[in-house]
């Protein structure tokens, strides 16, 4: 069975539009200006972190709260099944597309972060450890 990760009940502050993000090379960018290449290049510099491609396989409403969704991913080359329970407005970064959430209207309303609709088949950026065995 897929593993499940508990999610916090509110979004962290770095997703708010205008938040300053430091890339691995020290460059500073606003969260809304981040591009796919920024994550890829930062992971290349990192000695510990590796970027994985996580494909959205299923999106369901959470049974515990109407504010949450359960997103099932197929992670990495081994297509490991991982489910996460996240707030509807939680933004994921989709390769070549940018920030996307289950409810982009809420994301834009709460964070002012420009956001697309997260859909089955979208390939999100996720992290794993480089030395994961």
């Amino acid at each position: 069975p897929p593993s499940s990760t508990a999610a916090p009940s509110s979004l962290p502050p770095y997703f708010i539009k205008g938040s300053i993000i430091q890339l691995a090379d020290g460059e500073l960018k606003r969260v809304e200006d981040l591009r796919t290449e920024d994550f890829i290049q930062s992971a290349e510099i990192s000695s510990e972190l590796k970027i994985d491609s996580s494909t959205v396989e299923r999106i369901e409403g959470s049974q515990t709260s109407a504010n949450f969704a359960v997103v099932q991913f197929s992670v990495g080359e081994h297509r490991s099944q991982v489910s996460v329970e996240v707030l509807l407005e939680y933004p994921f970064f989709v390769f070549g597309q940018g920030w996307s959430s289950c409810c982009p209207d809420r994301t834009t309303q709460l964070l002012e972060l420009p956001c697309s609709k997260l859909s089955v088949g979208d390939v999100c950026i996720s992290l794993t450890l480089k030395n994961l065995k």
Binding site: S3, I21, Q22, S42, G76, S126, T128
Partner: peptide, 25 residues
């Protein structure tokens, strides 16, 4: 009067979920 304020800077990896594949064996 405008006083300078420190602006928080967040590391890039904070924004990306850490999706760990379930261990099998």
């Amino acid at each position: 009067n405008v006083e300078p304020r420190s602006v928080p800077v967040f590391p890039w990896h904070s924004l990306v979920p850490f999706l760990e594949p379930s261990q099998s064996g």
